[in-house]
């Protein structure tokens, strides 16, 4: 058991896994070109469903992705074992630190490493358990029920700004900004929300994202105004945001420690 633990925390394993990751991702980049259609459904199908359909049917295109999982798993285990070993060593040697703050700041790197593992777990949970309604189409002044919920969404208005100018002539009359006002009804309560491009919102554990809209052109064939929403319930989101917060905290601690060391060197000179 100790041998396995030692092997899992070995720096050699880290280097091997990182090199293999580089090779795998290079292969994946080459493989992905022209086969995006195989991977696009991963956004809404979920990992298990995707594996049983696209993943199994096109092994030549997807093998790099499965190798990536194996390698990331190894990297996470290696990081955990390596970091835990060092944390225990640090705690055992706490008596050597006269300053409590300096001792605490020594954990900064390890916090960042654990945060990385939390982020990876968050992504895995997201791929395994997120439920996505990938294309909910709502016309102007129409309401629809969100599948799997008792929430109704009404598109009250859509405000589209079209580019008008001489600087980028080819963009003239094309939509450059869009805002849509939605009325959400749940448990007999109504809530107004506004959504835009790269401007999602959260409502009752669901995240709402603007996927598409019309009309995209001011002139030409007139399309009836509508929006297409991506609605997602993602339990992994909290994990990877937490991991990000921990990573930031570790980074701030590390930078503070670095500044402390710099100022101490300055005093010695």
């Amino acid at each position: 058991m100790k041998k396995i633990w030692k092997a899992l925390g070995s720096i050699r394993l880290t280097i091997i896994v990182l090199l293999l990751l580089v090779c795998d991702l290079a292969g994946g980049y080459a493989s992905l070109r022209g086969s995006e259609k195989i991977f696009k459904p991963l956004n809404d199908l979920g990992l298990i469903e995707w594996i049983s359909t696209y993943g199994k049917t096109y092994p030549g295109h997807t093998v790099w992705f499965f190798a990536l999982f194996v390698l990331l798993f190894l990297l996470a285990v290696n990081t955990f074992v390596c970091t835990t070993d060092r944390v225990f060593v640090l705690i055992e040697n706490r008596k050597h630190f006269l300053n409590r703050l300096r001792f605490f700041l020594k954990f900064s790197v390890h916090i960042m490493h654990y945060a990385l593992i939390i982020i990876l777990i968050g992504y895995l949970v997201s791929y395994l358990y997120a439920v996505t309604c990938s294309n909910m189409i709502i016309a102007l002044n129409q309401d629809s029920m969100i599948p799997g919920t008792k929430i109704r969404v009404l598109l009250q208005s859509i405000d589209i700004d079209y580019y008008q100018g001489d600087r980028l002539d080819f963009l003239n009359d094309r939509a450059c900004k869009v805002k849509a006002d939605l009325l959400l009804t749940a448990d007999d309560k109504q809530t107004s929300k506004t959504i835009g491009l790269n401007d999602p919102f959260w409502f009752k554990d669901l995240s709402f994202h603007l996927n598409d809209f019309a009309p995209r052109y001011k002139s030409g064939m007139q399309r009836q105004p509508y929006i297409s929403l991506i609605i997602k319930k993602d339990p992994g989101m909290k994990l990877y945001f937490s991991g990000t917060v921990f990573f930031l905290a570790g980074l701030i601690m590390y930078l503070y420690q670095w500044f402390l060391l710099q100022s101490r060197k300055g005093e010695e000179i």
């Binding site: 396995i4 092997a7 070995s10 050699r12 091997i16 194996v70």
Partner: peptide
Amino acid sequence: MKSVCCCKSLLIACFVLLGAWLLGACS
């Protein structure tokens, strides 16, 4: 030396599993 062997064994085991999956997927 022993840790290198252990690393290699672990990696080999992982890729054997991956290969087995691929064979299953292909059939």
